[in-house]
Amino acid sequence: MSLDHPETSTEKRRPDWAAFAIAAVLAVIAAVIFFDVARVKGTAGYSQVGPATVPEWIAFGLIGLAIWTAIEGFRGDFPKRDRQEFGPVVWVVAGLAAQMLLLKTAGFSIATGILFALVAAGFGRRKLWLTVPVGIAFCLAIWLIFAGLLQLSLPAGPLERLFL
C-alpha cells in the first residue's frame, strides 16, 4: 500500500492526532487486561507463570507500543492516509448488520440476499428493487446446495421452508 501521498508531504512534521488516538486505544486495551486478569491472580498452581502473567506481559508490551506510537505521532513520522469515502463503507456495514439481525427470523436466503444487494450498492449498483430479488434467488440456490445437499446447518426461514 503506498501511503505517501505527494500532496500531503507539505504537512510533514506536524503532530498526527490519529496516532494519539491509536496510542490511547492501545493503552486502554492494556488497562482492560490489567483490570480483568487481577481476578485470576493466585490460581497459578505449580507454575510461577499463572493465568495472569502472560496477559500482563502483553499489556506491558501494549503500553510500550502506545508510548512509541505517541512519539511517532508527535514527531509526525506517522504515515499519511489516502482519502477514504465513507458512503460505501456504510452500505457494506449496513449489509452485514442487516444479515446479522435478520438471519434467525428471515432465514439464510433473505438475510444474505439483502447483504448481497447492500454490498453491491456500496460498489455503485443502487437499483435495490433489482438486486434484492436477485440476491435472494442467488442465496436460495446456495442454500439448496449447501444445506440441502451438503448438510451444512444454515438457518431456515419462510422461504427455505417451502423446500424442506
Binding site: 444479515q99 438471519l103 447483504l115 460498489f123 440476491g135 451444512l152 446447518s153
Partner: peptide, 21 residues
Amino acid sequence: KPWLYSGILVFATLGTIGANP
C-alpha cells in the same frame, strides 16, 4: 467489482454461519 465483492461477502458469511450459526 460490485458482484465480486457481494459474492465474497456472501461466501465469507456462509462459511461462518455454516461453522456456527
